[in-house]
Simulated scan of single mutants.
Amino acid sequence: MTIELYKENSYIKECTAQIISVNERFVVFDQTIFYPGGGGQPCDQGTIKQDDEIYKVVKVKKIDGEIIHEIDRPLHDIQQAVIMRIDWSWRFQNMRYHTLLHVISGYLYQHYNASATSSQIEKDYARLELAFSPEIIGKIPFEQLEQSLKKLLAQPYNVHTKTMSRREAEQKEGTIKTIVNLLPASLSEVRIVQIHNIDEQACGGTHVNSTTEIGNFSIIKLQNKGATKRRIKIQLD
C-alpha cells in the first residue's frame, strides 16, 4: 500500500521513494507526493529522478487502491530509489481552486440549501454545478455572489483535515452524509476537510492551509443547466 504523503501535507514538493512494482512505464512506489486526481481535481504533474536520469510523470491514477505513476519511458533501474518532484505551480493553483470550490459550495449550502452535484478544475478556470429547490432558486441574487464571497473571505479562515470512521461520517448533519454514501463500501475511514464553519466535506484532494492563500478571483460565467441547476465558472487572478 502506497503512503499518500499529499494527504498528510499538501506542501511537500519533493521526497524519495522505493519502487514496489513496475509494468513497463507504469510504476507503483512505497510512498508518493503525487495526487492521482479525483473529485474534479486533476492529477499532479512533475518528474521522477534516478541517478542522472529525469523522467516526466505523464499521468497518475488510483486503480483498485494502487497509485500508478505513468512515466514517459521505462526506468533504467527497477531496484534503485527515486526522487519525486511535483510541479509546484500546477499543484498550488489546484489547491487554491479546490479550496475556493469548497467555500462556494459551503456558502450556497448554508444560505440556500444548495447541493453541489459536480465540479471540475481545468487549466485556466474551475466550474461548480449546483442544484437548488424550485421554491428558492428564483430568489437567489446570483449577480451579488462574487461580492458576497469576497466579503466572506475578507477574514482569514484555517483549513483543517481530519479522519473519522465511516459510521461517524454517515451520522453527521449536512452534505457529508450524501458524499459518504457514494464512496466504496470497503472504505471504513473518511477524510474530512473543514473550513471554519463555512464547509465540512468528505474529500481526498489537496487544499491550502488558509483561505488567504486563495487570492483574488472572479466569477466569469453563470449558466442555467436546467430549471433548478446552475453552473458557476470561476477564475483565479
Rank of each mutant, 00 (worst) to 15 (best):
L145P: 11
I220H: 08
V58C: 09
K123R: 13
R166M: 14
Q80T: 08
Q18K: 14
Q144K: 14
V103L: 06
T163K: 15
A202P: 08
D237G: 13
L108M: 14
H76C: 08
Q147D: 15
K123S: 12
I68Y: 01
Y35C: 07
D72K: 09
V57Y: 08
Q50A: 08
E66F: 11
V193T: 00
R167Q: 15
F132L: 03
S21H: 15
I136Q: 13
K172Y: 13
G204H: 05
L152G: 02
A169E: 04
S148L: 11
P141D: 07
R166K: 15
Q41N: 06
E24I: 08
W90P: 08
T32I: 10
C15H: 01
A227N: 12
D199L: 10
H76P: 10
K59W: 03
Y157N: 07
Y157T: 01
R191Q: 01
Y97G: 03
T117L: 13
F29K: 02
Q41T: 02
K225T: 02
A116S: 12
Y11S: 08
I71W: 06
L183K: 00
T206P: 13
E146R: 01
A126Y: 00
N224G: 14
E14R: 15
G174S: 14
T16I: 11
N181K: 12
Y97C: 05
Y6I: 07
G205W: 05
T163W: 07
K13Y: 09
I220D: 11
W88S: 03
L130S: 02
K139D: 15
Y97F: 09
E170N: 04
H98A: 08
R191T: 00
Q194M: 15
I86G: 04
R230D: 10
